[in-house]
């Protein structure tokens, strides 16, 4: 799966933190600014106020973007250590840079909800990398996998990458796991039963954190011992970025 994705940290010079992530055929640019002065009506006495804006690849945002924003906010809120920055504002802006050609016209109907699920991993990963770059205190880091269940066979594959073998899709899921193995996000669209959900859970967990959390012997930023799970990919991305930041030490 990591071969389908790429990420870069601090792609823009002016925001406090930024990141670009491509996966499932979508490219998303996220910028984070904060802690800023919150407006009086948004200000919260004991924690930071988080604002999420999503801008579509073309046109202006509408109800689909507002709905994605609220999903993403409820995913990010437990991840960000909001009590560390009381009375302030953390502004997260996500611009969708490109969408796969098949998703161009999908603004309504069931195809739109598939597109929404397929977009969630890029949004979640870009937002977290930008938050890390902005040095916003966080409780954990989580990975999101988007999966499709094939009708009849109950086979589980990745959304939009053709791994489902062209079968008719029964349901799509976006499932997110924290580094500690806790489920922080589960969005689904379509029909599903308990058995299907169980299969999705196992597959999502495997794709997010194959080694159940920490990887010990992986060399950062190197090809050696490359892990195939999303958390390994995220760690590699962060490692590469940190290595660039530490270049002046001349240790490598």
């Amino acid at each position: 799966m990591p071969s389908h994705q790429s990420a870069q940290v601090n792609t823009l010079p002016h925001p406090d933190g930024s990141a670009t992530v491509s996966s499932n055929g979508y490219t998303v640019l996220c910028t984070v600014n904060g802690p800023l002065e919150a407006q009086r009506r948004d200000e919260q006495p004991l924690e930071a106020f988080i604002e999420v804006h999503i801008r579509p690849a073309n046109g202006v945002g509408g109800p689909p973007e507002r709905s994605l924003e609220s999903t993403l906010l409820s995913f990010l809120h437990p991840i960000i250590l909001t009590p560390a920055l009381p009375r302030s504002l953390i502004q997260i802006t996500l611009q969708i840079l490109s969408v796969p050609p098949t998703a161009q016209t999908l603004r309504t109907g069931s195809a739109a909800s598939v597109a929404r699920i397929a977009l969630l991993p890029s949004l979640a990963h870009a937002a977290q990398l930008a938050l890390l770059a902005a040095r916003i205190p966080m409780r954990t880091v989580a990975c999101v996998a988007s999966l499709a269940v094939v009708e009849g066979t109950g086979e589980v594959g990745v959304v939009g990458v053709g791994e489902t073998g062209g079968g008719k899709v029964e349901a799509v899921h976006a499932v997110g796991y924290s580094r500690q193995g806790k489920c922080l996000l589960w969005e689904m669209s379509g029909r599903g039963d308990g058995r299907g959900m169980k299969a999705v859970e196992g597959e999502a967990r495997r794709r997010c954190l194959v080694e159940g959390g920490k990887g010990e012997d992986v060399v950062m930023g190197g090809v050696e011992g490359r892990r195939e799970d999303l958390m390994g990919w995220l760690e590699g991305t962060i490692g590469g970025w940190l290595k660039g930041q530490q270049r002046w030490k001349g240790e490598s």
Partner: peptide, 12 residues
Amino acid sequence: MAYSDVLLPGDE
């Protein structure tokens, strides 16, 4: 830089 030197949020 070996990976074990780097901490991510939530790591003890």
